[in-house]
Design a protein around this nucleic acid. Structure first.
Length: 556
RNA sequence: GGCUCCAUGGUCAAGCGGUUAAGACAUCGCCCUUUCACGGCGGUAACACGGGUUCAAAUCCCGUUGGAGUCACCA
């Protein structure tokens, strides 16, 4: 059959040739080892930790050697599109300090937008030019099979226990004559364009994955769909065209794509493109309670792993980045500990240090990292971070919390251990921080704990007497040690050990020790068993508030 | 089911033919500490199983088992 004639019938409107595009998007002039990477999400508006994980890898690889990291939007599936998704993606990544060099979201005429458009919907002319060429060469053809017909074939193949799919003798539209095609089109039948696969079932391809190493896979034999019935390309075809024309050098993507490398291999091959390097990442996993095993993070089942979740609770983006980096490159953690003052972007990120199997997401580890990283901030950095978070996520309480700047700074200094020999590590994320210090602002806060006083080892009456004694002897002008000496005096009076060493020697001789006295006062004042130095707390909140709290505890 | 990848403590992981099998998180204990933390020291805890190859195997090969991914006009 006359392929040229067929191509013209199918694509009468194509004006530009592949050569035109090759020239329009020349090879990038970059330093010798620079890589061009990309993030290519579909605009569903949902980004989870896995996406960030992978985007961070791409970004590091590109920026490590002055390469390019760009954003392309894979909006070829109408059904999944969500409005505003692109803005969300850019904002979220920006929040985590990951910046693109070019791509979607940049001004169309900007210097760094030479390889656009970056929305696949806007690239259909390009795809068509290349498909037309393939049809001319007899490497692609129209297929009029309906979904029902395909489903029937699939069932038949299933029953015979042979490979399912559109290939070989099952590719019924493969050898349709021009006349038939013409008649079908004339009749208004819908069709897709399929690849005429040149692969052989008993040959295999070998390629080097830069994360997983050498991998052997069978050749592709499927006549996969290149253009869907609406003329929009499938992922596979768009990937080949876009990554070639945008001159991507390294494609880091999820392991779910590994199985389709043979398709991409054939596509790049028949198109005459050089393949980029591939790196297929292991997925972040989650422990599944139901099955008792690991599984891939899923959008459906794990809403708590969406990035919004971390934003809402106010995880500091820097901490998230550090955590992700420790997962991404096994030697990062060691490096970061060795050079705590170096910019984490100076870490020599390397693809081959990336993990082969999926890491279980570990919240304990994340929290530990948060504690450590947050303890390195200054009180002003912390103040700003908390303020920004509160404005957005707790607007009503924000005014109360930040009404008195000096008070807040004082609290932060105290809780962060600023001015002490060593920093404290109480802070994990914004919401947790405000829960920790809520008693400074909310009189009701901690009442539950106060109510419990006297229900444990020490009886209620004793507790109340201790608190009364505390109030009676309290002097707001006492310094820290004078104040503590009074606690000791109370201890002695009630048969508690004021000397820890003596207590340890003969614990049975006492009702308890100063630590117990301090705990009682601590809970009465703050509603918490764990807080920094009580004397300082009392001096931040003031005598009045303290008295009120203790009175409330006694009156229970 | 076919194809592919993976397999070291509870978790993340070093390891590249000879190691007392690192380290981090979690956990437990002790010490420091006038209270809470921080910190310091120490403990418990691992090479999935079975065959080879080798003087020597966590490391190389082959099976088994287990886990994961994928088999669309979704990406």
């Amino acid at each position: 059959m006359d392929n040229k004639k067929l191509a013209d019938l199918l694509f009468p409107d194509v004006v530009n040739t592949p050569e035109y595009y090759e020239e329009k998007y020349p090879y990038r002039k970059l330093p010798s080892k620079a890589q061009v990477t990309r993030m290519a999400p579909s605009p569903t508006g949902f980004i989870h930790l896995g996406n960030l994980y992978s985007a961070l890898a791409d970004e590091r690889i590109a920026h490590k050697k002055n390469g390019v990291f760009y954003l392309r939007i894979e909006d070829t599936d109408e059904k999944r599109k969500v409005d505003g998704a692109v803005e969300t993606i850019i904002n979220v990544l920006r929040y985590f300090n990951i910046e693109f060099d070019e791509g979607a979201g940049f001004d169309e005429n900007a210097e760094n937008n030479k390889y656009g458009p970056y929305f696949q919907q806007q690239r259909v002319d390009i795809y068509h030019a290349y498909v037309k060429r393939l049809v001319e060469k007899g490497l692609a053809y129209p297929c009029f099979c309906t979904e029902e017909e395909l489903e029937k074939v699939r069932q038949k193949q299933d029953a015979k226990k042979i490979l399912t799919g559109y290939y070989g003798e099952y590719a019924t539209c493969r050898n349709m004559s021009y006349e038939e095609v013409f008649a079908n089109i004339k009749a208004g039948k819908e069709y897709v364009i399929r690849l005429r696969s040149q692969g052989s079932p008993d040959k295999e391809i070998t390629f080097k994955d830069c994360i997983k190493g050498e991998i052997k896979l069978p050749e592709n034999i499927h006549d996969i769909v290149l253009l869907k019935k609406d003329g929009v390309p499938t992922y596979h075809f768009a990937h080949a065209i876009d990554d070639h024309l945008m001159r991507t050098t390294m494609v880091i993507r999820g392991g779910e794509w590994l199985a389709s490398v043979p398709i991409h291999y054939e596509l790049f091959n028949i198109l005459g493109f050089k393949m980029p390097e591939y790196g297929h990442t292991a997925h972040l996993m989650k422990f599944d309670e139901e099955t008792g095993g690991k599984r891939k993070l899923s959008k459906r089942k794990d809403p708590e792993l969406s990035l919004d979740y971390y934003r809402k609770d106010g995880y500091h983006p820097y901490c998230m980045k550090v955590y992700l980096l420790t997962l991404l490159n096994s030697n990062f953690e060691e490096w970061h500990e060795k050079f705590p003052d170096k910019d984490i972007n100076d870490f020599p990120f390397s693809v081959d240090k990336m993990s082969q199997s999926g890491a279980l997401f570990d919240k304990d580890k994340l929290h530990n990292i948060c504690k450590n990283e947050l303890s390195c901030l200054s009180e002003y950095e912390m103040y700003n971070f908390l303020h920004e978070w509160a404005v957005e996520h707790e607007p009503e309480k924000c005014d109360i919390w930040f009404a008195d700047k000096e008070k807040m700074l004082g609290i932060l200094r105290l809780y962060m251990g600023i001015g002490m020999k060593r920093r404290r590590k109480d802070f994990i994320y914004a919401r947790q921080i405000f829960e920790l210090i809520a008693y400074f602002f909310d009189m009701e806060d901690g009442q539950k704990e106060r109510d419990k006083l006297g229900n444990q080892t020490i009886d209620k009456k004793t507790v109340h007497n201790i608190l009364k004694e505390y109030l009676a002897t309290y002097n707001h002008d006492d310094d820290n040690s004078a104040w503590f000496n009074k606690l000791k005096a109370i201890a002695d009076k009630f048969g508690f050990a004021s000397d820890m060493k003596a207590y340890k020697k003969e614990p049975e001789k006492y009702n308890g020790n100063v630590s117990d006295i301090a705990e009682i006062v601590r809970i009465a004042v703050t509603g918490r068993a764990n807080t920094p130095d009580l004397w300082q707390i009392v001096h931040i909140m003031g005598q009045e508030q303290m008295t009120e709290r203790i009175t409330a505890a006694i009156e229970v």
